[in-house]
Design a protein around this nucleic acid. Structure first.
Lengths: 202, 202
DNA sequence: ATATTAACTGGACCAAAGGTTCACTTACGA
DNA sequence: TCGTAAGTGAACCTTTGGTCCAGTTAATAT
């Protein structure tokens, strides 16, 4: 018979995630070692690795929790985020939503990036991050739909990759996410050849 | 009297730089430890740190060598890279040149990024990298000149930060720099509201 | 209730890498 | 030739991601 997760394991898993979340909210990622998370959660280091495989695994689990809501809104939700609106509008709406999410989790994103670079295996492509992949696919598809003549795949990497970048990361941390959303919107509209151009607000 | 660099020190410095360059050309950055560079250069690890201060210091020295030529072309050289051409043209020309340089040194850029994330101090902003700062200032100024209404500072970060991003990095490594240059050009032209829009080639 | 078992646990342990120390050596000016 | 500041490099330190494994325990079968 299929055994489900043991009660104690589930409790510890939640304790670890909560501890990591809290530590990342109050400390820069490079100060949040796996061991420290384990201590804060009241478990041994081995347990953390047993459950999450690696530092990256832990970060990814945290990311997934957060990304799930956005994912649903895109697939099922009402326009302009969900299906139904024109591609251009959906793209801008999605970028807004992603920036908002990134702003709320700037520390976590930085930590994930930190973990990725710290790891040994060179194979640690960002394409191994399922969340990034799904976001990229979405943005890329929207761009291609609106402008079949541009390199949608690459443009999507530029727009999304920005969020993993340090100068933008610190802006998000300092609460200037509106600027980031506006600029990404300008770039996207410009790329799609929107007649209004990058002028915003006017 | 002012003493200049000792002959043996100069010899070792060049040996270290050459060894690092060679190793980075043939191995992914996370496999090129400072110690390995030292061994390849035939010196002790302490010497490397004495000369360059840290892993980042070493990488930055290598970058500077490469960036110097481009710097000159921008300040002194003929248009459209140098002064004289309209801002929009200078911007596109500069992005082309930067992408070309990044393509030639993709391994080095990845290594620098790797070093930055590995270091302890949280203060390791990218703004501590003088080359990035000068590039950013240039791009930002050009954008502001052409379109005073957009957030030039941030747009410049998006355009340049892209080059430090992993998906784009691997494209550069695999020789697809033309795509990268084209897409950055599309984005820049779109942002500047160029009538031609992002259509290229047509 | 008891036995069985597979999953869970956690602290000791390991290796890699950046960085520091310091006694020793050496190039260079006087 | 001599004094010295600069240069050198091997041993050592520390941190951290990750592994090991012997002991523990929750869930299931009898």
């Amino acid at each position: 018979m299929e055994r489900r997760e043991r009660a104690d394991a589930a409790r510890n898993r939640r304790a670890i995630l909560a501890a990591a979340e809290e530590l990342l909210r109050e400390h820069p990622p490079e100060e949040v070692s796996v061991e420290r998370v384990a201590v804060a959660a009241g478990v041994g280091k081995g347990t953390v690795f047993h459950r999450f495989g690696s530092r990256i695994g832990l970060m990814q689990e945290l990311m997934s929790e957060r990304a799930h809501a956005l994912e649903q809104a895109v697939v099922d939700g009402p326009p302009p985020l969900g299906p139904g609106a024109p591609a251009g509008e959906r793209l801008v709406a999605f970028l807004d939503a992603v920036v908002a999410m990134a702003a709320r989790n700037a520390g976590l994103i930085a930590a994930h990036e930190h973990a990725r670079l710290t790891q040994k295996a060179g194979g640690g492509t960002r394409l191994a991050n399922p969340i990034y992949v799904s976001w990229h696919r979405h943005v890329s598809a929207l761009i291609a739909e609106a402008r079949p003549d541009v390199d949608a795949d690459l443009a999507a990497h530029v727009l999304l990759g920005t969020l993993h970048t340090q100068p933008i990361g610190s802006l998000l941390l300092s609460g200037e996410s509106a600027r980031v959303a506006a600029t990404l919107g300008d770039l996207a509209r410009g790329l799609l050849g929107d007649a209004g151009g990058p002028l915003r607000g006017t």
